[in-house]
């Protein structure tokens, strides 16, 4: 295993990949908030994004200025190769753990 990502980091990475070409700050935030039904602050989100960027799992580019944002540009994110890899590794680890602990985790019918 080459790296380690936290739960929130994983969430952000997955959301970015899920949003595809529309993965910018507000969209990521709203998507996570909708799915997880939890309020996240823009500060927390961008801190995480900064860390992911530092670790090389995502990259970003600036979009064109748009009127809704007072003429400010959006910063779009996408996964890098190693970002995709780490997600796979994390998932593999999870699957393995799931397999091991299947019986005990079974939901009551």
């Amino acid at each position: 295993m080459t790296g380690y990502i936290g739960e929130f980091e994983e969430l952000v990475l997955l959301t970015i990949s899920g949003l595809g070409d529309e993965a910018y700050g507000v969209a990521i935030k709203e998507d996570i908030e909708k799915r997880c039904r939890r309020d996240i602050s823009i500060g927390a989100l961008h801190s995480t994004i900064s860390r992911l960027d530092e670790k090389g799992y995502i990259k970003s580019w600036l979009g064109d200025p748009t009127q809704e944002r007072g003429g400010r540009r959006k910063r779009f994110f996408e996964l890098t190769r190693s970002g995709v890899n780490i997600l796979h590794e994390t998932k593999a680890l999870r699957d393995e753990l799931w397999k091991v602990s299947k019986t005990k985790l079974a939901l009551n019918k």
Binding site: V26, R69, R72
Partner: peptide
Amino acid sequence: VEDLLGDMEEMFFA
């Protein structure tokens, strides 16, 4: 921080 300001403004209007 242009992108951050943009994000915040977008959210504000939302």
